[in-house]
Amino acid sequence: MAALYLTIFISLILAIIFLVLFYHSNKTGQYEDTYTPSVRMLFEDEAGYKSVEEKQRESEENTPK
């Protein structure tokens, strides 16, 4: 049962680490803007990106006549 001391100790340490991370993220402004990153995430990388129209044009060119 002495293992319980260890597990409680570990679980508390873990929780405190998360709390510190939370404190850090708050301090560095991660809660300043909670909307923009959600949009930014969806922007695809430029390389190889094709707009809808480009894709349409390409598919028209590729279709055999």
Partner: peptide, 20 residues
């Protein structure tokens, strides 16, 4: 200066303690 959002931190601390 950026404003530090204190309330969020207070909620975080309270939630952390409550959970444990």
């Amino acid at each position: 200066r950026r404003s530090e959002n204190r309330l969020i931190l207070q909620i975080g601390v309270a939630g952390f303690a409550f959970g444990n």
